[in-house]
């Protein structure tokens, strides 16, 4: 009996340490195989286990970052790594405009800056596959893409203006415990430019004709694809030095085994 209690205690302790090992502000994502809208090579992709930030990086967090790493300040960043609108909503190198909320997601960020931020924390940007994998979950299901309501909600956000001014964490978290993948801002991904969208969508459809049964037609059950289409379109329109009012980021950490 005493032995059993000891074992139980031992098990509890082990679980405790496991839970403790999870990085602060991140949740554990169990990898799997799934079919994204635009597979790069074939249709099924495999995502390995990783941890992801619960929230997008905020203005406040980025303020701390530029204090510690002055080379990413507005006036000091290399022209190669940014365009004119980098941190356009900041009044100085280290301070937000008074109108901005420190708890809103940081935007007007180039891909280089986002990548550097994650690397300084021993993290990296998520790949498209990782991001889409976590983002296809709703509050109760890991793959909610078949639910029309889920897709309608996402689409309706794409039409709502000024959502970047909201603060993080206002929407319910998804089943992984991750907030704001939809409904706040677009997010940078590590390999955002690996999907070739030329901007001529009809042509893009041709290029991926094997994905669409050789024709341009999308059938009515593909509502979810419309939401995803728009994400791929925005990624396709970007260059790494661009920064945009509605584009932020979050980081992930691969699990070392």
């Amino acid at each position: 009996m005493k032995n059993l209690a000891f074992r139980l205690l031992f098990v509890l302790l082990v679980i405790q340490t496991c839970a403790f090992s999870q990085s602060k502000g991140m949740v554990y994502i169990e990898g799997s195989r799934y079919i994204p809208l635009y597979g790069r090579d074939s249709t099924v992709v495999e995502v390995k286990d990783f941890e992801i930030d619960v929230y997008p990086v905020t203005n406040g967090e980025y303020e701390k970052f530029v204090l510690e790493h002055p080379k990413w300040q507005k006036s000091k960043i290399l022209k190669l790594f940014s365009d004119k609108s980098y941190l356009a909503n900041w009044k100085s190198d280290i301070e937000l405009k008074d109108s901005e909320n420190p708890n809103s997601p940081v935007t007007y960020i180039s891909w280089y800056a986002a990548k550097a931020y994650c690397e300084c924390q021993d993290k990296r940007l998520p790949t498209i596959d990782e991001w889409e994998y976590v983002a296809m979950a709703d509050e109760t299901t890991k793959d909610a893409r078949v639910k029309p309501e889920f897709n309608k909600q996402i689409l309706s956000w794409y039409e709502a203006p000024h959502s970047n001014e909201n603060t993080i964490g206002l929407h319910p978290k998804n089943v992984w415990g991750v907030y704001d993948l939809h409904g706040l801002v677009w997010e940078w991904t590590l390999d955002f430019n690996s999907v070739l969208i030329t901007g001529e969508s009809r042509k893009d459809v041709d290029k991926d004709s094997n994905l669409f049964c050789g024709s341009a037609a999308l059938n009515a059950t593909d509502l979810m694809n419309y939401a995803a289409f728009m994400r791929y379109a925005i990624r396709g329109s970007l260059k790494a030095k661009y920064s945009m009012k509605n584009l932020g980021f979050r980081c992930v950490k691969p699990i070392k085994k």
């Binding site: 969508s201 042509k203 009012k245």
Partner: peptide
Amino acid sequence: KLPHNIDMHAVTGPGGGAESSFVAP
């Protein structure tokens, strides 16, 4: 929120200009 482009039916050229005009916010 979104990238856009323009396809002009008056244009003689690929995509009516759509490909060259794909522009991010």
